[in-house]
């Protein structure tokens, strides 16, 4: 049977991807960011997941206002990096796991989650930057990836509670998949940042710390945080943090936090990163 062994949360800041791609990761500004992922890169090289279910949001790249799915699961064979306005990132093509992805889609729909099944889409920095952070620069990503795109661009996004419960539904689906696979679930985005308007540039370390603590030790409480609190406290784009709840719901309640990193700033954003391991 497939099993979820670990969960990862991480910011997925576009500027971080650009820094990696331009070889700037050792300069004074960026090295403190990448320091926080040194442990993680060693850890994942040992853990060797077969599949990562990568929860992220599309930033108006694959999905525009023509069609906005709340939850879209990528069931295709592969996904190309998106051109977000100045050419695509030169990172490897993302290989999917159609069998497991379809199984999750089927199981979740029968559990009354109204998934959108996607066979063809490009994946933007929200998905590729976490891969770069965890695996570094690579000729090919070392595992299969199932993209799970969550709408957080068009208000309203799903509630935190809904995200947490979708995580539980994913857990159930993975645990009933008959192949022997090591699966990780990653929740990406955040932490506090606001990219728009006169209030752009806000950071809220106090809220971020509260959120890191809650997601780790009291995820049900984290799941009750209203949209309003995210948007005010974490900035309008900090609402991305709801995606971490999908990861957390997919992990067991007693999963253990084995790594935490928090840093301000990367571009306009607070960087947060956690690793959880499920009990063996």
């Amino acid at each position: 049977m497939a099993r979820i062994v670990a969960g990862v949360t991480t910011s997925h800041i576009g500027a971080v991807g650009a820094a990696i791609d331009r070889g700037l990761s050792e300069d004074d500004y960026w090295s403190p960011v990448f320091k926080g992922y040194e442990f993680s890169q060693r850890w994942i090289a040992e853990e060797k997941p077969d599949v990562v279910i990568l929860v992220y949001n599309d930033h108006a790249a694959a999905f525009t206002l023509d069609l906005i799915p709340t939850f879209a699961i990528g069931c295709g064979e592969q996904f190309h990096p998106a051109d977000e306005g100045r050419g695509a990132r030169k990172v490897p093509v993302v290989k999917g796991h159609p069998e497991l992805a379809w199984h999750i889609a089927e199981s979740a729909i029968l559990d009354e989650f109204d998934m959108t099944i996607v066979n063809k889409m490009d994946v933007d920095h929200g998905l590729t930057v976490p891969l770069s952070l965890m695996f570094g620069q690579a000729d090919a990503w070392p595992c299969k990836v199932i993209p799970l795109a969550v709408n957080v661009v068009q208000y309203p996004p799903p509630t935190g509670n809904r995200c947490y419960n979708l995580g539980k539904a994913i857990r159930k689906a993975v645990e009933t998949f008959p192949q022997d696979l090591k699966v990780m679930v990653w929740g990406t985005g955040g932490m506090s940042h606001q990219l728009q308007g006169r209030r752009a540039g806000v950071i809220n370390s106090e809220f971020d710390t509260l959120f890191l603590d809650l997601i780790s030790r009291d995820p049900e409480a984290a799941a009750r945080i209203p949209h309003l609190d995210y948007i005010y406290q974490a900035g309008s784009e900090g609402i991305e943090l709801i995606m971490w709840l999908i990861m957390r719901g997919a992990l067991r309640r007693e999963a253990k936090e084995i790594h935490r990193f928090y840093h301000v700033p990367a571009s306009n954003t607070a960087v947060g990163h956690l690793i959880f391991e499920n009990p063996r």
Partner: peptide, 28 residues
């Protein structure tokens, strides 16, 4: 997961809806 109340994040009392957040235009 309902029933219990949401954790207190220290939201100011006058911020009652997404329209009340200064300098911020939520994409409604």
């Amino acid at each position: 997961n309902s029933g219990a109340s949401a954790p207190d994040t220290g939201l100011p009392a006058h911020i009652k809806s997404i329209d009340d957040i200064p300098g911020t235009t939520v994409f409604t």
